[in-house]
Write a protein that binds this DNA or RNA. Structure first.
Length: 639
RNA sequence: GGGCCCAUAGUUCAGUUUGGAUAGAAUGGCUGCCUGCGGAGCAGUUGGUCGAGGGUUCAAAUCCCUCUGGACCCGCCA
């Protein structure tokens, strides 16, 4: 927290000086300087006053500081702005501040070691819904889907930690064409219900063998396309036999998909099925509302004759209901969005679907008659976040536009977009799917079978991690070895999926992604393990950081970084940028590694200095622990 | 054709929201550092007309315009 107070007090100094000179109203900035030598905070106010005062920046900066120094003697300065150690006018024109890290250090170490994170209450119990994952239930997850899971779950962890009341939804689109494709495979191409290879996951079987094969055959055999159309109609009209078979298949796929998600330690609260939304009053009522309020209209001529359409101001005409009265993909998202923000009543009954990895219940909507219908309150929320890749931005804009016409709460509906994951040219070449053999990255495609399976990558990372552990810690064996390897694999995967800017696409390379070194999840875990060993060897049980003695630049660096955490987490939440936490954790680990390399900790002869350093290590350990858990990485004591 | 996004070191990316001091990491290449608190580490070196051109400004990777190259969206698919 302390660094924030330092900024506030530096701001007070500037404000005071401006007031004394009657120069209020300039929107200056207080930022961290490029170089440490300049101090901990810089103000650019002097540059902004050049024209007004017709003086050089340095003269102006000196003049401002003079006001402050002149009106406050040293004692008064310490009393009113204790976090500011010094202020100087630099010849460049900047006003540079130094922070009082002896004070900040004491405060921040006490705060961390006493587990005082009251500043984390940003949400004040605010209810937030996050929808993520939402993979069609006809295939196994590929690495592209994992980016969605990693972003969504990190957001969930961040919001929960900052006292938001978070509900995580996973939307299962169980009634579209892609499900009909799989049914074609089973019913007409006679794929066996149980794959011949007993070790093959059912989701992989459907996605790899059936989905790809069926889509190939459509081109050769048009009668199959007709069969799919018939199946889809039966599905949407709720034909008992077909619906029940489809439900059996999609649930089997879903179960296997969830295994992959849970492997990454993603948490969900509720599964929403598209078929349930269609078959409830949700869709019927929404359709009615859209017609009554003349938000959609029926085309009586032209190519869209017979369809109910929405005319978007920016995006043109969008079909909501087809001429055969079936709802399009976007149509089904409208009632779902209204449900999330509370414009329509929740019509569902709920039952527990299963207990998941973190021992929480995963719920599911149901039409079953229930003796006891007690369940958590899922809807509505004050904010709804939908994690979907940027290719769907246009559709999400249209949904928002429709919501705008229905309710004033539409601003509570946020599409969190992120760039898709592409295969690097090297990886595409390795998979033999880059026919041109050029240097371009490739879009993945489930339908064409161009993708890298998520479990495959995790398995490969697991084996690699295992080799590394055996090399350095042969005493780790059995379940410990497997467990630790798995945690390292997850760490590498999750970290690499959130460390980049959301809007940038990720070029996935199987070789690069296997690296457990450098700016990676395992690097963070390694720093954590080092901290653990130091604390263990110090044999200190309770930490006293009231008598700390900071004696080296690196220690000040560490204090500074630790004290900035509250600012970073605020920025992360405000801007919805998970990468900021990843970057913060990486920087912390880097400074710690430097500290560890350069300064004796346990071996330090001076007891005060040694004690201070051990306190620092413990604070770093706790802070790494918190950051890692926010990203969904398990801190490891040994690896 | 319309819309939207991107372009920074050999490669993968920070930095752009809010202009500011010598543009930073990681990785790759080369070179050092383990009888020492864990070498999944640390240090050094190599490597950049910040896509091009113009404009605004005391100051531009950052803001504006034009152009070039690339990706994505524009379906009675989801």
């Amino acid at each position: 927290m302390s660094f924030k107070k330092f900024i506030e007090q530096a701001d007070e100094v500037i404000k005071f000086a401006l007031e004394k000179l009657n120069l209020q109203g300039e929107s200056y900035s207080l930022t961290e300087p490029a170089k440490e030598d300049f101090g901990d905070l810089s103000c650019n106010i002097a540059f902004l006053l050049i024209k007004k005062l017709e003086k050089s920046p340095y003269e102006i900066a000196s003049m401002l500081i003079e006001q402050y120094i002149h009106n406050f003697d040293e004692k008064k300065r310490l009393e009113s702005t204790p976090y500011v150690k010094s202020v100087v006018a630099h010849e460049s024109g900047y006003i540079n501040f130094k922070a009082n890290f002896d004070l900040i250090g004491k405060e921040i170490l006490n705060e961390i070691l006493q587990n005082d994170f009251s500043y984390l209450d940003i949400g004040n119990g605010r209810k937030v819904i996050i929808e993520h994952t939402s993979v069609n239930p006809n295939k196994a997850l590929h690495v592209g889907h994992l980016r969605n899971v990693a972003i969504g779950d990190t957001l969930y962890r961040l919001l929960k930690k900052t006292n938001h009341n978070v509900t995580v939804l996973n939307y299962v689109d169980d009634s579209g064409l892609q499900v009909a494709d799989i049914l074609v495979g089973f019913l007409y191409l006679k794929f066996p219900l149980i794959p011949e290879d007993k070790d093959l996951k059912f989701d992989t079987y459907c996605g790899n063998a059936i989905y790809v094969k069926v889509n190939e055959l459509y081109e050769k055999d048009p009668s199959l396309v007709e069969k799919r159309k018939t199946l889809l109609k039966k599905l949407e009209s709720g034909d008992a036999e077909i619906s029940s078979f489809a439900s059996e298949i999609t649930l089997k796929v879903l179960n296997d998909q969830l295994k992959t998600c849970w492997r990454l330690k993603a948490h969900y609260d509720l599964l929403n099925f598209e078929s349930h939304i269609l078959n409830s009053d949700l869709w019927k009522n929404t359709f009615q509302k859209l017609r009554d309020q003349r938000i959609i209209k029926k085309e009586t001529e032209g190519k869209n004759i017979g369809c109910w359409i929405f005319e978007s101001v920016d995006e043109g005409i969008k079909i909501i209901v087809r001429s055969d009265n079936t709802a399009t993909y976007i149509a089904k998202d409208i009632p779902y969005a209204l449900l999330k923000i509370g414009t329509i009543q929740d019509p569902f009954k709920y039952k527990v679907f299963t207990n998941q990895w973190d021992d929480s219940n995963l719920w599911i909507t149901t039409n079953d008659h229930l003796e006891n219908d007690t369940h958590p309150i899922f809807f509505p929320a004050e904010n709804s976040i939908t994690v979907i890749d940027s290719r769907q931005t246009r559709l999400q804009k249209i949904i928002k536009e429709v919501l705008n016409k229905i309710t004033e709460k539409s601003n509570e509906y946020l599409h969190l977009a992120y760039g898709p994951v592409l295969l690097s040219s090297r990886t595409a070449n390795m998979l033999g799917i880059n026919a041109e053999n050029n240097n371009k990255s490739m879009q993945m495609s489930g339908r064409k079978g161009i993708y890298v399976d998520a479990d495959y990558v995790l398995d490969t990372l697991h084996s690699k991690a295992k080799e590394e552990i055996i090399k350095r810690n042969p005493e780790i064996t059995g379940a410990d070895l497997e467990g630790t390897s798995e945690e390292i694999a997850i760490s590498a995967m999750r970290y690499s999926l959130i460390k980049n800017d959301l809007e940038k696409e990720i070029k996935f390379d199987t070789i690069d992604s296997l690296s457990l070194e450098g700016n990676s999840g395992p690097y963070l875990q390694y720093a954590y393990a080092r901290c653990c060993r130091l604390i263990e060897k110090s044999r200190i049980k309770s930490f006293d950081c009231n008598a700390i003695n900071l004696s080296h630049d690196i220690e000040y660096h560490l204090i500074k970084h630790l004290s900035k955490f509250s600012i970073v987490i605020e920025d992360t939440i405000k801007n919805m940028e998970p990468k900021l936490i990843a970057q913060y954790a990486y920087d912390l680990a880097t400074i710690f590694n430097l500290f560890y390399e350069k300064l004796p900790i346990l071996k330090e002869k001076n007891a005060d200095i040694s004690n201070t350093r051990i306190c620092l290590v413990e604070a770093i350990r706790l802070m790494l622990e918190m950051n890692l858990s926010l990203i969904g990485i398990t801190p490891l004591e040994r690896m």
